[in-house]
Design a binder for these strands. Structure first.
Lengths: 346, 346
DNA sequence: TTTTTAGACTAAATCGTTTAAGTTTTGATG
DNA sequence: CATCAAAACTTAAACGATTTAGTCTAAAAA
């Protein structure tokens, strides 16, 4: 790597002081138009690139943010990451991507790394309900925004900025939907009880069934940690029970695809024998032959909005407000729930 | 954000010079064990974090690399990004993710941005065959590795480090496979002729058919730029021709899913009426009911290996060798080609 | 006892930029 | 023509670390 020209080199070439060069290149007043143009020409000539480290050392800004997800290979996250990245780059920042593999320890490690690299802020998509890393971030007034999942422990829960979906309502709607289609034995393939999305989705569905006058059999609720393989295994187990569930509500689409494989493997038809509802509306669910009924998660919007809020926090140190945004969900009815065959029966 | 303790603060507290502190914390000789421990204790006490900008200003290293993809929401890239990120973080670096949306101009912009942020190197997954941004990178001896796609223009092509799949062989095998299944009217839903993967995959298939004694009708070859929507539209058009193709080979799985939708929309069966072969072996292709025959692309391996090579280049300035790695492909035979129904007929 | 030398430590320069605090030049005003 | 303010420009001090070139002390060697 060839060494870049510095402001001093330009100053020497233009026969002015480094200060003059700095002022000229940053379009600040203090130099005449004539010298400004002369300096700019020389800078261009020398292919001058300001040294970012030196600038950052003074400004204490890195113009980069961290994005923490469990794994970018989980189909939930790419759209979210895209939303973040597009907003961020638009405003002159860049995005450092980190995967935690659902490990709290890696999350801590990654947060430390990001802070030591002086990122200006972090978008955390992996927060658990009692995430121990949130309060320290608040204490040191480090800018961050939670997306998709929130911390539910007080007092931190009241203080954090977040953008989430209304998981409770989404799950409520899913529960009502399955009930009105006639289902009473509804398996809930739950995400993680450690996450707000997991518990909200459980509570939403349970409430819907309760409101419908249904007594829920808790043995139909299994925690699968948002992992496809676990969902697959647990589904096989549930299908072998007597009586088996007549419907499955999985807390994300990745898991519902695991459920689907299990159902098909047992030679059962979807939706005639088993109804399926997923969550997130990832691309795959819309394919013919998959046709999964699911709930929108607006990954892109969460990412983009989270990024916007984070950058606003970073750039506007005066304002002191807490942004807590909940986006509305929508039930996307496709074929896997059987609605197209019969409509609601109650 | 509270201001961090600096080396000077520690020096003052420990009643030594900043130099001593620096030496103590970097386990360099020059301080006695006693003072070293005293200094380290004070540093811990003050929760000292070295200022990354100041360190980088001297070392000229940012310990971060750029990863450039067309769009992280394209299902091809998440696994690749994961491979990069896992290797990179393991070695104490971090990954800045950038999307070009297939625009050369954005690619240039993003490269400029990354260089101005002093990333130590770049993994470029978006190179076109005559990418104008490669030669300048070579000229300034900027560390970078191409993955998945390479530049084919000389002399740059001989000088770049890359990790790619053997697209030609993969496509050759796909062509042979379809031929031996009895197909003669094989539509090629090509990626982009601007990319090495696109042209290699065309050439591979054409050679396979030529070797089989088949005269290929070029009107069955359409360029769809690795876009699902284009693949869908072009497939509809081809299916409406007389005679229509009996098989489609799409240059990535995202496009083959578009083809699949078109075929189903026309009321045709897969594979009985139309055989399908894709490329990349993305997760979706393995689902029951999708069952696409496809070709492995080893996204994770390409990413991981590319990252490893890049970091080796960055850290070892003495060595001066060019790494050009081609990974072998494998045909994954599932149901969409019809092999399971009849086997090869020639 | 004197000389040598290794070890412990420090002062000051450096990395490349910005910025606060001057100084000089220019041109307008009375 | 003297006066003064604004404009143009410079000097020097940051930012927070590392590094080079010392200095000083104490123990070992002569």
């Amino acid at each position: 790597m060839k060494k870049n020209a510095t402001i001093k080199d330009i100053a020497r070439a233009a026969n002015v002081s480094p200060t003059a060069v700095s002022m000229a290149l940053n379009s600040r007043t203090g130099v005449s138009d004539a010298t400004r143009q002369r300096i700019q020409a020389i800078a261009r000539e020398m292919d001058y690139q300001p040294n970012y480290f030196a600038q950052s050392l003074i400004s204490r800004k890195s113009h980069s943010i961290g994005l923490i997800v469990t794994s970018i290979s989980d189909p939930f996250y790419p759209e979210l990451a895209l939303g973040v990245e597009e907003v961020v780059i638009e405003r002159g920042y860049s995005t450092i991507l980190c995967n935690t593999k659902r490990s709290l320890e890696i999350e801590r490690h990654v947060l430390d790394m990001l802070r030591s690299k002086n990122v200006d802020g972090v978008i955390l998509a992996t927060a658990t309900r009692d995430d121990p890393h949130i309060q320290p971030l608040l204490d040191m007034r480090f800018p961050f925004v939670l997306v998709n999942r929130v911390i539910t422990e007080f007092p931190a829960a009241r203080k954090v900025n977040y953008v989430i979906m209304d998981s409770y309502s989404g799950a409520y709607e899913a529960g009502k939907h399955l009930y009105r289609l006639g289902h009473e034995r509804i398996a809930i393939i739950a995400g993680s009880l450690q996450t707000s999305t997991g518990t909200e989705r459980i509570n939403g569905t349970l409430q819907a069934l309760k409101d419908s006058g249904l007594d829920y059999d808790r043995s139909f609720l299994v925690e699968c940690g948002f992992e496809r393989e676990a969902a697959y295994q647990e589904s096989l187990r549930l299908l072998d029970q007597n009586p088996p569930p007549s419907a499955f509500f999985a807390h994300d689409d990745n898991m519902v695809l695991g459920v689907r494989e299990a159902v098909l493997e047992r030679g059962l038809r979807i939706p005639e024998d088993i109804a399926l509802v997923g969550y997130d509306n990832i691309q795959t669910t819309a394919l013919s032959g998959i046709d999964l009924t699911t709930i929108t998660a607006k990954q892109y919007e969460m990412g983009a909005l989270g990024a916007k809020i984070l950058l606003d926090i970073i750039e506007d140190t005066t304002r002191n407000m807490i942004n807590q945004i909940t986006l509305e969900t929508e039930l996307i009815i496709r074929k896997s729930c059987g609605y197209h065959l019969q409509g609601y029966c109650r």
